[in-house]
Every structure is written in structure tokens, then in C-alpha cells.
């Protein structure tokens, strides 16, 4: 994988619960295919799924950019949506602003951001109320087992 940077971009539709999780499945399949360590793939899948679901549950639409850099894996999820007024509060496990109909489906447990934090090595959130949110996660990886793509 020397010097080669691999990247992918996906669209995420807000409120599209039918396709929710598909982007994260693709991310997972790519990493699995490239031979990454299963525990690393698991961490990325959880973090990516939670970021994807936040867009589906809260935003109008968004994108997931995912890049395999020489030293790490980077996931950037950007959305056009309501934004997060108080990020510190939103990070608290159990805090959620999900509406009741979403909670009934088992979403909105208030675990999304904390699951991301637990599984990513770095988590950066920039949010503007009324405009949207950008979540960047960096996962420092054991190298691809096969060493190339």
C-alpha cells in the first residue's frame, strides 16, 4: 500500500431507514477484502454505522468519505441538518434528541457518539446549528494483512 491512497465516497439519505447501514456494510466489506485485522474491521464498522445512522436519524442528507491513508484510516461524515447545539451534552451516553417514532425502532439510545468515541482513535466534531455537522474519525490501523490492494 506504499504511498497509495485509497478513498471512497458515499451518499447517505436522511430518514431513509430502508437503506440505512448499507454504506457501513460497504466500508466493512472493503476492509475485509483488503485483509485488515478482524478486530479493526469490527471497530470501523461500529463507528461508521453510528455515524451513518446519525445522518439517517437526524439530517436531511449527508456523505461518508472514507480513506485508507498510509498510517491510518479516516472517515469523514458530513451532513446537511439541524446541527448539534451542545456537543458535550450530546456526547453523554443516554442523551438523545431522536423523536419517539425513531426510538420505537430501537434507535435513539443515546449511544451513537459514545460508540464512535470508544471505537475511533480520534473523533472530531464540528457542528453549526441549522446547517449541519461534520464528524471526522481517525482509526490507526494495523496494516492491511496482504499489504496491498
Amino acid at each position: 500500500m506504499e504511498k497509495k491512497e485509497l478513498m471512497w465516497d458515499y451518499e447517505i439519505e436522511g430518514k431513509d431507514f430502508r437503506n440505512a447501514g448499507r454504506v457501513s456494510s460497504k466500508v466493512k466489506d472493503i476492509l475485509k477484502e483488503l485483509g485488515f485485522d478482524p478486530d479493526f474491521v469490527r471497530r470501523v464498522a461500529i463507528a461508521s454505522y453510528e455515524a451513518e445512522m446519525n445522518v439517517v436519524c437526524h439530517a436531511d442528507k449527508g456523505t461518508l468519505h472514507f480513506a485508507i491513508l498510509p498510517q491510518a484510516l479516516q472517515i469523514v461524515v458530513k451532513d446537511r441538518g439541524p446541527g448539534i447545539p451542545d456537543i458535550e451534552l450530546a456526547m453523554q451516553e443516554g442523551y438523545s434528541t431522536a423523536p419517539p417514532e425513531i426510538r420505537e425502532m430501537g434507535f435513539g439510545a443515546g449511544m451513537g457518539l459514545s460508540n464512535m468515541k470508544k471505537n475511533a482513535d480520534e473523533l472530531h466534531i464540528v457542528s453549526t446549528v441549522g446547517q449541519g455537522t461534520v464528524v471526522e474519525m481517525v482509526m490507526r490501523s494495523p496494516r492491511s494483512r496482504q499489504g496491498s490492494a
Binding site: F17, R18, F107, A109
Partner: peptide, 25 residues
């Protein structure tokens, strides 16, 4: 769902009452 995401393990059987498509994901 986030709880299952965070705490289930590969090879587990998952018991739930949620029957919507997201459980498959």
C-alpha cells in the same frame, strides 16, 4: 440497536422484538 452494535459478538444469536429491516444491517 446501538446497544447490540456495541456489545454483541461475532457468532452470537441475537434475541429481540425488532422486526424492521435495520436488524439485518
Amino acid at each position: 440497536l446501538s446497544d447490540v452494535m456495541a456489545h454483541s459478538k461475532e457468532g452470537d444469536i441475537w434475541v429481540t422484538i425488532q422486526g424492521h429491516p435495520n436488524v439485518v444491517a
